[in-house]
Write a protein that binds this DNA or RNA. Structure first.
Length: 190
DNA sequence: AGGATGATGGACT
DNA sequence: GTCCATCATCCTA
């Protein structure tokens, strides 16, 4: 069954550990520069608000994390390690602070602009900071609604991956055991 | 091929 | 002052 905007919105309406794997294979579209960049999402992580010590929303709503408490499909952008920008989409009911971090993707359109932004031709988007840099997403995009056709960053339906692998999340020190990182796998290596 | 490290800012104790 | 939902670069092998 092929995905639609509606099925994507339904997926994001649920809890992040269910929404996250359903996000794989969909397309992030950036119309920020002079060229469109499209990226197929291949790696995500779920963060579940007040019940997840690893979540930025664990201690409740603040100025920084407020976008995660908005309607599902709201972009939450934050500064990581003082240098990088990372991006989530909010999921679940308003006020929960649930989100899915976009950790990786593959550029399927606008590779030239993505390469210029990254300053290299490989490793364009295998990491949350690299994803944002390749798409041109900066902190001022925080709060963007990904389903508004006028938004400079949008989410479009794409084909589900052949297979999804779940692993523990990367780079966290709390709740390490939860298998809430999901990776799209297109081939089984031998 | 893999481990250590510096950059750098905001949130929290 | 310490801790990060990171990344590029610089080591050592």
């Amino acid at each position: 069954m092929t995905r639609t905007i509606t099925s994507l919105q339904q997926a994001l309406a649920g809890p992040p550990e269910e929404a996250a794997p359903l996000l794989l294979g969909n397309i992030l579209v950036s119309t920020i520069g002079d060229e469109v960049v499209r990226m197929r999402i291949t790696e995500v992580e779920a963060y579940k608000g007040a019940e997840d010590p690893a979540s930025h929303a664990y201690r409740g709503r603040t100025d920084r994390n407020s976008s995660m408490f908005e309607r599902p499909g709201t972009l939450y952008c934050y500064r990581s390690y003082g240098i990088h920008t990372c991006a989530n989409t909010a999921t679940g009911p308003v006020g929960q602070g649930w989100g899915v971090l976009i950790r990786g993707g593959e550029v399927v359109e606008g590779r030239g602009l993505a390469e210029r932004r990254r300053g290299r031709q490989e490793e364009l988007s295998n990491g949350p900071g690299k994803v944002c840099q390749a798409l041109g997403i900066t902190l001022d995009r925080d709060g963007t609604y990904l389903f508004d056709p006028r938004s400079a960053v949008r989410l479009e339906p794409g084909d589900a991956p052949e297979m999804v692998v779940a692993t523990p999340r990367i780079g966290i020190s709390k709740a390490k055991e939860r298998p809430w990182r999901f990776v799209a796998v297109s081939q089984v290596s031998q």
